[in-house]
Amino acid sequence: MDDLAGFLRTRRSRVDPASVGIPTDSRRRRVAGLRREEVAHLSGVSVDYYVRLEQGRATQPSEQVLDALARVLGLDETERGHLSRLARQPRRGTKTPSGWVRPELLRVLNLLTDAPALLMNHRLDVQGGNRLAGLLFGRPLPCLNIARHLFLEEGEHGLYADWDTCTRDVVGHLRLAAGTYPDDPRLASLIGELAMGSERFRRLWARADVRARAHGRKTYRHPLVGPLELHQENFALPEAPGTELLVLSAAPASPSEDGLRLLAGLAAGTSADGEETRRAGEESSRL
């Protein structure tokens, strides 16, 4: 799904030669970004060796070489880690997580009644969530994949108010996951499905950007309670690699907090209606 050669080519194409001290004449440059020989020279490796890296014919570059390439290509910490993982893969990567979630974790989710909370794996499958999260997304959570929901179901005028940013973040995360779990067939299938169904996904995937799943502001357009500006906090689960607990909270005394309270009331009403229906069924069965 991802390889060292392709990642190097996309990163090289984005470096402004002037930013690394190379005089430019646009009439004489036929490639975007740096030339291969320029990357090699600035990194302190031979041109032949760098060409072999970009052709996938050189394996296991040293940490010194990777550090030099990261410096020349201007990689951030996330990209540097991705580069290292791609370079270290002997074509079999990290074992794909099983996806099993302890029942105790699911119980903890339902203790959170004032904020949407959910468990999400590296494929962006929602593995469980509380009632408030289910009402936020408007569908059963165990059937929800955030990437599929974003690109194939909601679109730019749906639930996600900052759709452009969300799409970039999701594709960057999936790129990172593909480098970490290259042998995950379900991840490969998801990426293929998204590429077939979304032109924007294809364009973003071709950029080969990588992004870590990060905390921060998430804005939604909810059909029942209106705009919700929430803060997402991520909690890694050491016993479940690739899975995180996500909690979405609103600022105190904000319209979004009022919106969440209204959603929470709907969740309580749904629960009460379900309990009344269950009791009515029991009474009926006794007659």
Rank of each mutant, 00 (worst) to 15 (best):
D184F: 00
G134L: 00
F137K: 13
L150A: 02
A161I: 04
V51Q: 12
L194H: 15
D258W: 08
S84R: 15
A268E: 14
R11H: 10
S26A: 13
A272F: 11
S256G: 08
T219Q: 12
G265E: 14
H157E: 15
A177P: 08
R30F: 00
P227A: 02
R91Y: 01
Q60A: 12
A240P: 00
A253P: 01
E153D: 06
L8C: 04
R261D: 14
A147V: 12
A268D: 15
E275D: 13
G179P: 01
L260N: 11
I22M: 06
G179Q: 12
L119P: 01
A68Q: 08
G134I: 04
T10Q: 05
E257T: 08
H222E: 10
V39R: 03
E37K: 05
P182R: 14
Y220M: 01
L141A: 05
Y181T: 03
V39N: 11
N121W: 00
P97F: 01
R286N: 05
R279F: 02
V39D: 10
R88F: 01
R286S: 02
K218R: 14
G33W: 10
R211A: 10
A115F: 08
L176G: 02
S254M: 07
A264V: 05
L66T: 04
N234R: 11
P252I: 15
T219V: 13
L141N: 06
C143F: 09
V210N: 06
L136C: 08
E239M: 05
G99M: 03
D162F: 02
Q55H: 09
E38W: 04
M196Q: 15
E104T: 14
R186M: 07
L118H: 15
D48Q: 11
A18T: 14
L4K: 07
T78F: 00
S249M: 07
A272K: 13
L53K: 08
P116C: 01
L73W: 11
